[in-house]
């Protein structure tokens, strides 16, 4: 059967689905000063599971927007302008939807898959763990 390590190299998704893998990748990203991209990715997953009837959900959507999108952070820089506008307008109109961050998450995931994930698989931190 697949060892956790074999799964980590299979895809970013399987790395992030593994507790140790996600932890190690997070440590790597902290060192590379781009841990916000991973936190944003997890925040999008967490948000999707929230109850839309709960008043907390709008507050979390606003918090995600404020922390990662409206400023000039690393996440914001990697998002398409149209994606940011869509999220800003949804929050402004208080039209909260479970999938409102999906497009942004996909864009961040693509950049992570092409860059940070590949770098992680050849990093000291990964090779030492292996």
């Amino acid at each position: 059967p697949d060892s956790p390590l074999a799964r980590w190299t299979k895809s970013l998704h399987s790395l992030l689905g593994d507790q140790d893998g996600a932890y190690l990748f997070r440590t790597f990203l902290e060192r590379e000063k781009c841990v916000d991209t991973l936190d944003f990715w997890f925040a999008c997953n967490g948000f999707r599971q929230m109850d839309l009837k709960d008043t907390k959900t709008l507050r979390v959507a606003k918090a995600i927007y404020k922390r990662y999108i409206e400023n000039n952070s690393i996440v914001s820089k990697q998002l398409k302008p149209a994606t940011k506008t869509y999220i800003r307008d949804s929050i402004k109109k208080q039209q909260i939807d479970s999938i409102m961050f999906d497009q942004a998450q996909t864009e961040i995931q693509t950049v992570m898959e092409e860059n940070a994930y590949q770098m992680f698989l050849t990093s000291d931190i990964y090779l030492e763990y292996v």
């Binding site: 956790p4 992030l16 593994d18 507790q19 996600a22 936190d39 997890f42 925040a43 967490g46 918090a63």
Partner: peptide, 20 residues
């Protein structure tokens, strides 16, 4: 009352993998 940052951290934590 939860601060916005606490809510955000809880949201992130809820999505992190718990066990292998």
């Amino acid at each position: 009352l939860n601060s916005e940052d606490d809510l955000l951290q809880k949201c992130i934590g809820s999505a992190m993998p718990k066990h292998r």
